[in-house]
Nucleic acid binder design. Structure first.
Lengths: 224, 224
DNA sequence: AACCGCTTGTGAACGTAAGAACAAAGTCGA
DNA sequence: TCGACTTTGTTCTTACGTTCACAAGCGGTT
């Protein structure tokens, strides 16, 4: 039963495809025509066998003895990720982080169009942001529905996140990117990805802690 | 050979411990004294068996028939993550995102102290930020060494990231949190975690794409 | 046209993680 | 003190992900 349906790409692979895509864009800018799995893997920071297996899920794209055509591979990855069509997004919560996200150039350059920025604070509504302006949260549903928005980005405080999430889902959003430090509950057809900034630092803290203790051998801290 | 040395906690578990910790803090604020694996797992959005296994790596903490003491568990997780000692950090690159990170309340409230904010832009140096001020990048090494900084946060453009990373590592930083969309190369004793904002959206895009195609059956898009 | 060197694509082995299920170990009430 | 009940800690099974190693396939060369 280890059969995988054609078109089924493992999660871990999908996450790396985004990295390969970025690397390939860089190579294309340098007018590189062809790249081997070994080279590409080195730049992307992964094992070359893993890279080849990842790419093999997209079909047989490379040429044996030669490598991969940069342009072709780039298109293939982009189409697998569904990046051939522009996707519309909304951002809810325009505090510090929300502002930064709104100004992040990587989004629009990669095919994501933000059609609305929302906040509850009346003081912020109307403020201009990233060649648009902040709308009141009450307009959320109408904007989502009018634009067929599929992705919602939540950058509110933790307390507001679930409510905002529910409203997004009710309005038709089927993918959520959550920056609020809270666990979201959603229906099964909705995908959530979370970015937990404090957790990232805590994970690094764990490794720091470990490094400063064990130093590689079977040493165990005696617990008082 | 599936023995795991005592004290060895799996990566996947470490990442979740940070989530449990946050949930437990919330429970403690509500004056909850005891919590069962089932309850805690529900709030944290994970399977209860997984949660129990995660916690079992920290030792036998719960009481059968009762559950876990919230305070005790919280302390145990915090100490496993090395959060009992405050960790000093520096932030390099104070653009939009850097500002947002500097203003993020979750860092200092969880034991992370930023002792320096750096940028190359002379126009920004001196600007006040999060009850401190922006320093010139040239001071990076001296600040890192003077404060025994162990964690560096990179929020520069992609082109600068590797150079900044090298400087941090040379100065003695052993953990890096990278927000720049680039792959960092570091010595083996240094840990890197990356947060790739555009990649997150692309992963969601993939799932959107998949939902709008297959709808759950063996349907395969015919490739022209 | 036959060979040679190179690189892909993949099968098999290994390691890590998730989930189900249950025995062990505790509390609480009588 | 004993028994019923609850919830943990852990074992076992299954799934997923990574890595190795190599046959298959292609371009260039003679």
């Amino acid at each position: 039963m280890s059969e995988r349906r054609p078109g089924e790409i493992p999660e871990a692979t999908v996450a790396r495809l985004a990295v390969y895509l970025r690397v390939l864009t860089g190579l294309a800018d340098d007018s590189t025509v062809t790249v081997s799995s070994e080279e590409l893997a080195a730049i992307a920071g992964v094992n070359s066998a893993k890279l080849r297996k990842d790419l093999s899920y997209l079909g047989s794209i490379g040429t044996r003895g030669v490598g991969y055509d940069v342009t072709l591979l780039r298109e293939k990855i982009a189409s697998s990720l569904g990046l051939t069509q522009r996707r519309t997004c909304v951002l809810v919560g325009v505090g510090n982080l929300g502002h930064a996200l709104a100004g992040y150039p990587g989004f629009s350059s990669r095919g994501f169009t933000f059609v609305g920025y929302f906040d509850v604070d009346p003081g912020r509504v109307g403020e201009s942001i990233a060649d648009s302006q902040i709308s009141d949260i009450s307009e959320l549903e109408s904007v989502v529905e009018a634009n067929g928005v599929s992705i919602g980005v939540i950058a509110t405080p933790a307390e507001a996140a679930q409510t905002v999430c529910d409203r997004l889902v009710d309005a038709g959003v089927t993918s959520i990117l959550n920056f609020a430090p809270s666990v979201l509950t959603v229906p099964g057809n909705v995908d959530v990805r979370k970015v937990d900034l404090a957790a990232e630092l805590q994970i690094l803290s764990f490794h720091e802690h470990r490094k400063s203790r064990g130093l590689g051998d079977g040493l165990v801290e005696s617990v008082g």
